[in-house]
């Protein structure tokens, strides 16, 4: 059974009176431990598909299934929990919370996911995990810094640490190197590859076929459909 699959999903955005059909029956399967790259030109709907897979958005038609269960039918609460427990997002523009320091940004999924009492009980353990992740990404000297004080590459590594914090089943990366120079981008990809080798399932969106080539499998998105 695939870990995650989208079957014939449609998504149309409405801009006033005009309708913009973005996805017109796209299907994709992601097997456990696989690194899939979604390749397509700008505006082809790659991010939209990723958001549907990650439970940030719901399709107009078709189904998104996680371990065979249709997440499109989840209650809002359950969908929130799905994102929190099973998915880790990494975005092109890092998307860190500017008022929190590096350590706090990394711990956010744990803070969102656990109740107050559990937090009190597991605080030390959670902090340890966050520190360990940051340490692995070479950020141990940066834990008290604000995102604004970091370079782009460092910020993206914090974002990856945050995505991994809650031990997700699948990492969703939307142009993770889009905003970085080639060398830094390469380092980020190497970090992802390392996680992949350790067994992490990755869905990565890119418009660059050289970057897509790092994945196990490439899925082309053309005109709202998987070619």
């Amino acid at each position: 059974m695939p870990l995650l699959e989208a079957e014939d999903v449609h998504r149309t955005y409405r801009l006033g009176r005009t309708e913009v059909p973005v996805l017109k029956g796209a299907s994709i399967r992601v097997n456990p431990g696989e690194w899939v790259a979604i390749l397509g030109s700008s505006g082809s709907g790659k991010s939209t598909l990723l958001h549907l897979l990650g439970g940030l958005d719901r399709p107009d038609a078709g189904a998104v299934r996680f371990r065979g269960e249709s997440i499109s039918r989840f209650s809002p609460r359950r969908l929130d929990r799905y994102r929190n427990e099973h998915v880790g997002f990494v975005f092109q523009f890092y998307h860190l919370l500017p008022e929190l320091n590096v350590l706090e940004n990394t711990m956010i999924p744990a803070m969102v996911g656990v109740g107050r009492l559990e937090w009190m009980r597991r605080r030390g353990e959670i902090r340890e995990r966050a520190r360990a992740l940051l340490d692995r990404f070479g950020l141990s000297h940066r834990v008290r810094h604000r995102p604004a004080e970091l370079s782009g590459g460092e910020r993206q590594r914090v974002a990856i640490a945050r995505a991994l914090m809650h031990r997700p089943d699948v990492l969703m990366a939307d142009e993770p190197t889009g905003n970085l120079d080639a060398k830094t981008g390469e380092a980020i990809l190497e970090t992802l590859a390392e996680q992949h080798r350790a067994g992490l399932t990755i869905v990565m969106v890119t418009h660059d076929q050289w970057i897509a080539a790092r994945a196990d499998r490439i899925v082309h998105l053309v005109d709202g459909r998987v070619a």
């Binding site: 809002p76 609460r77 929130d80 994102r83 998307h95 860190l96 919370l97 500017p98 969102v112 945050r162």
Partner: peptide, 16 residues
Amino acid sequence: TRDIGILRATGAGRGG
């Protein structure tokens, strides 16, 4: 607004 999107992406609900 963007912080809200980030929080929602990590699983925070509307109520939160």
